[in-house]
Nucleic acid binder design. Structure first.
Lengths: 216, 216
DNA sequence: CGGTAACTGTGAAAAATTTCACAGATATTG
DNA sequence: CAATATCTGTGAAATTTTTCACAGTTACCG
């Protein structure tokens, strides 16, 4: 068995997504005081085969011990390092409605990997009302604020008729990624902007389709 | 070119997910008064190739016209039919905190495919406070209510230490699917229960990893 | 300390998914 | 109405991803 980084270079996207989930799991177990875990256990938790987990972990620089399982702390920091979780970037929230507020106040206000440094809303009145710990701006200031605060990620939460205008402004400001919770699906105008649409209606339809096809 | 259903039988999951997104798009365009669209345009909107879109649509019973694009209304109802979007099922919300309230009051209170017929919360006090249009129950009533109201899907929204207990009760009640917005990752104990974890922290990490790997 | 059991890492095979290429069909234009 | 452009549907090729199988390693137990 050869040690060291063998298949690194580029991690397949499905593997990357799983690694993020594995990391979550490790964090949870670490908090519980666990120190070691096997690929089989991880797989069971994630609903995939242990082969798959080992392959995924194989993309990291170094990880487990052959005979025993994985040392949780070690694997955790290995993922952290390879995926760059230690670098902190700036994010903003666009749309300060109910969902936006939930996210801002979510858990600890301090997310991993990203710090929320600004909020935007097209409703000027809302700007006064919000008593958040972050500064809020009207949406027409999006491009300038993104540039001045070096914001890389935008979380869009409000159903808004002007969502295309908002996207345009985000792109204009040089945003690198958008997580969109609004029901209007966004599509990336440029190869270099990552867009993730999270929409409960689409989720509902997907589940419904699964149920239907399963029953047939 | 042969007509009729050729490759039906089973739709690959990635194709299924895209079909749901396509449906969303069609609905949007339909509302705008559009009547026709090409695979190329759909692909551009979804960020995938037109070949892919045509393959996906090929899983449906019938769809487009060779020379022209797709008739939006026709394609829409074809997806509806094949994926069973017309059947309405019952859902519940577990956790009536801020996020749960957002979902309950989301848009129109009436979701496609699912009707929210019950809410649960372990905090008894909250049951009094909530002034929703749906009946709410303490969590220990989950199994009985799920059975009596024939609930197939649960939307879990609250970070709760007892989340494992809640899952257990949902399974006990015979739930068929869970959409979990809580930060604790759920895993399916049984092959027949679909679980979808949606967690903004994992999303953040994934985006962060993408950025990091992109820059290297 | 030897034997057994459990586990990882990984090349190779298998399976799933996407991309390609093009035949056949429709619309459009002058 | 012929010529051109555009578009779908789909078998086949290419690619990606998962699964398999097993050599090599470590832990454990009597």
């Amino acid at each position: 068995m050869r040690k060291k980084n063998k298949q690194k270079g580029h991690i397949p996207l499905p593997a990357l997504a799983r690694l993020c989930k594995i990391y979550n799991l490790l964090e949870e177990m670490h908090d519980k005081g666990e120190t070691s875990i096997s690929s089989h256990d991880i797989g069971k938790r994630l609903g995939v085969g242990s082969h798959n987990i080992r392959k995924d972990i194989g993309y990291l620089d170094e990880a487990g011990t052959s005979g025993a399982g994985y040392d949780i702390a070690k694997l955790k920091s290995s993922i952290e390092f390879t995926l760059g979780f230690e670098t902190e970037r700036n994010a903003c929230i666009v749309g300060l409605g109910s969902l936006g507020s939930v996210i801002i106040n979510y858990q600890m206000k301090q997310f991993p990997c990203f710090t929320i440094v600004a909020g935007f809303d097209s409703n000027i009145n809302k700007l006064e009302i919000m008593k958040t710990s972050i500064p809020v701006y009207p949406t027409y200031e999006i491009p300038s604020v993104i540039k001045s605060k070096r914001i890389e990620l935008a979380v869009v939460t409000e159903p808004d008729r002007n969502i295309d205008k908002i996207t345009e402004r985000l792109i204009e400001g040089g945003i690198k990624g958008i997580i969109n919770f609004s029901p209007v699906m966004l599509s990336s105008p440029s190869e270099s902007v990552y867009i993730r649409n999270i929409d409960i209606i689409t989720e509902f339809r997907y589940v419904s389709a699964l149920f239907t096809l399963h029953d047939r």
